[in-house]
């Protein structure tokens, strides 16, 4: 185990350990792990399976499988990034890590990997509930594509979370993240289809990044509103890069 390292020092192990311990830290923080993993599942069971069971059950369940996936992964990305970055900025952990010879970007990459892992778990749990209990039937490529959308879809929300974390204090961050997360989820039709909401909400929905990710997921299950894929990807890319750049500037200026 502790053999002398004679070859040039490799940073790969640090990246791996950083990600592993980022995950363990969150896993051991029930106030993060439980809501992040359970809320989307519970909501989906309630709205997609129990309440929709009566009429057109499988239809609703199919739509909501896509949107609750997006809802779930948004949560772990926003909380995992926004709240943890804000707390670590407050308590000096980020500064300590910057002073240590940690390989560049290890903290951010670890948080990203963690968000993807949580997204993967959420995605699989939802697929099991949807496939087994709600009677959703999809082609194999659709299950795989939905999984991929969920796992890669964390990136724009990691960037949004990073920006929030760079702006607000650790104690304000959870409230602030909820203030962004919940309204955005509702207004972009993640909880219930936009067709069931007032017209002005449906009209303004494309203003939210979560709308565009949801449209990509809905396209996979053939229930999207018909917008072109390039537009959705374009908006998500702009949000990701824009928030990331702003957050970087803000984090650099904070010191």
């Amino acid at each position: 185990m502790d053999a002398q390292v004679l070859h040039p020092h490799s940073s790969l192990r640090s990246y791996g350990l950083e990600a592993k311990y980022e995950f363990l830290r969150l896993w051991r923080t029930p106030s993060f792990a439980l809501p992040s993993l359970l809320f989307p599942i519970l909501f989906y069971v309630l709205f997609g399976v129990v309440l929709a069971g009566g009429r057109g059950g499988a239809e609703v369940a199919r739509y909501l499988l896509a949107t609750y996936g997006v809802f779930g992964i948004m949560g772990s990305a926003l909380f995992g990034f926004g709240v943890t970055i804000a707390i670590e900025r407050d308590n000096g952990q980020l500064e300590y890590k910057r002073a240590l010879p940690m390989p560049p970007g290890a903290v951010l990459l670890a948080k990203m990997a963690m968000a993807m892992l949580f997204a993967a778990i959420t995605s699989v749990l939802l697929a099991v509930v949807g496939g087994v209990f709600a009677g959703v039937s999809l082609a194999p490529w659709q299950w795989v594509a939905l999984f991929a959308v969920n796992v890669l879809g964390v990136l724009p929300f990691c960037a949004v979370g990073l920006l929030i974390g760079s702006l607000v204090s650790g104690s304000a961050a959870p409230a602030f993240v909820n203030l962004v997360y919940l309204p955005m989820a509702f207004l972009s039709g993640l909880w219930m289809p936009l067709t069931m909401l007032p017209a002005f909400i449906a009209k303004s929905a494309p203003a939210w990044p979560s709308y565009h990710l949801a449209q990509v997921a809905l396209k996979v299950v053939e229930r999207d509103a018909g917008g072109p894929l390039w537009l959705h990807f374009g908006v998500l890319a702009v949000v990701t890069v824009g928030c990331f750049m702003l957050a970087r500037r803000r984090l650099a200026a904070a010191r």
């Binding site: 830290r25 000096g92 002073a99």
Partner: peptide, 17 residues
């Protein structure tokens, strides 16, 4: 920095690890 070790008073260290 690989030649440096540090103990900072302000360092936050994760409680759960």
């Amino acid at each position: 920095r690989r030649g440096v070790g540090l103990m900072l008073q302000s360092a936050g260290i994760p409680d759960t690890l």
